[in-house]
Amino acid sequence: MKKFTFFLTFVFSVHLNAEKLIEFSDVTYLERYQKLIKELRCPKCQNQNIADSNSPISKDLRKEITILLERGLDDDQIKIELASRYSDFILYDPKFGKQTYFLWLTPLLIFLFGFWFIFSMFVKREVNQAKQEDKHQ
């Protein structure tokens, strides 16, 4: 019996501490909500997503996401809506645009440059070899 009450104390204390659960009108919303709050960055507390962060601003953002979900917006629309206030900074996966093209295209350029470099080396080597063979003949 003692063990059982001991056990009960823990069971209920968990419930007491848990944050109020969010209820959605549609079951699929919860899944999307969980995904969205992991993909958005807290504006105030850097390097935390709004799922992990306890700051008031993250709470506001989570609340706004529930409202936007209920309004029937899709995931991209919700992200755009929030980024229009807090800028692309809050997106962990920002869209390809004028601020990000340099970041995405530089590796490609370096790769192409390297390719050209190696290619031209081979061509030169072949030319040199051909020249030497000419001399030997």
Partner: peptide
């Protein structure tokens, strides 16, 4: 300054 956000508005 990493705590500085670009202004969206």
């Amino acid at each position: 300054d990493p705590s500085h956000l670009p202004s969206a508005l």
